[in-house]
């Protein structure tokens, strides 16, 4: 019994000494010591370094995080609102009313990472959310309902291929990607037939056979082919004599526009054509 009492005394003594030492350390160190700053302690909870562009905010959690609600769009917009080149560019102008950031812009991924991870499904969902209205008779709510019905009842067979999900079909690709359509509208606006959001080419699309002669159904010749010298010189340089510009197959092969029959990848003879 006496031993137990003694050990209890000992532990109280140890606790008292520890607390005493801590108090002394606190009093002796200067007021601006690192461990007295809230930032130092906050930083210990940081789940990864911020991207280089946001590095200056590393010590200022409150710049983006509103207590309890987290990283709010309003905090991003506070700085990024007057990005005119972003809002005036057709491809990125959707940012003006998308109203949310973190679905696609992830932070704390490391200093050398970009904060962009495009998520088309998130974009579609954001659009649906914005259509939501408390008034069931409003135009936007009716549109939303029709989309919801469409998504719910669309059979799998209606999807062009398995790389596309239903939400993505709600998006209109040309709203953002019109300027980068290399087919200049020739292939219509149903991009999902041949493309997916996470990759450009898809193996599901198979080009018509090499023997096909209807290239012009989809392909358009560049302006240079309509110049007088084209028929007289360029085509002859290859040793070919197409009857008209629409006979693409006389010179070109389906592997690529600059894979020419009989000329292989003859760089020099094509040197006036900028390489892609």
């Amino acid at each position: 019994m006496a031993k137990k009492k003694k050990s209890k005394k000992k532990s109280i003594l140890i606790t008292a000494i520890t607390i005493g030492v801590l108090i002394v350390v606190w009093l002796v160190t200067p007021g601006d010591a690192a461990f007295k700053q809230v930032n130092t302690w906050q930083r210990m909870t940081s789940p990864g370094a911020l991207s280089a562009a946001h590095a200056s905010l590393e010590n200022n959690c409150a710049a983006c995080h509103t207590p309890v609600t987290g990283a709010e769009a309003a905090n991003c917009i506070a700085c990024h609102a007057n990005d005119k080149s972003l809002l005036q560019n057709q491809a990125t102008s959707f940012h003006a009313n998308v109203g949310s950031c973190k679905e696609c812009h992830l932070e704390h991924q490391g200093r050398d990472q970009r904060t962009l991870e495009m998520d088309h499904v998130a974009l579609a969902e954001l659009g649906l959310r914005q259509l939501k209205s408390n008034d069931p008779d409003s135009e936007s709510e009716r549109v939303r309902q029709s989309f919801a019905v469409l998504m719910k009842h669309m059979p799998d067979a209606a999807l062009p291929h398995s790389r596309v999900v239903r939400e993505e079909l709600l998006l209109n690709c040309t709203t953002c990607h019109e300027t980068e359509d290399p087919h200049v509208g020739y292939f219509g606006d149903n991009c999902a037939t041949c493309h997916a959001t996470n990759r450009w080419n898809i193996p599901e699309y198979i080009h018509p056979p090499a023997a096909s002669l209807d290239c012009v159904q989809c392909h358009k010749a560049p302006p240079s082919h309509y110049m007088p010298m084209f028929m007289s010189m360029c085509a002859k340089m290859l040793g070919k004599s197409p009857k008209s510009v629409s006979q693409c197959y006389v010179c070109h092969m389906i592997t690529g526009w600059n894979d020419m029959k009989g000329a292989a990848w003859h760089k020099k003879s094509m040197s006036h054509i900028p390489s892609r």
Partner: peptide
């Protein structure tokens, strides 16, 4: 405190102009 992501499906209806008015540029 820094925000949970689980309950984050509510729309944040912040058209740009209103957000700008609400939070002056720091």
């Amino acid at each position: 405190y820094f925000g949970l992501r689980w309950f984050d499906t509510q729309p944040q209806d912040i058209p740009l102009q209103r957000a700008l008015a609400a939070s002056p540029l720091p």
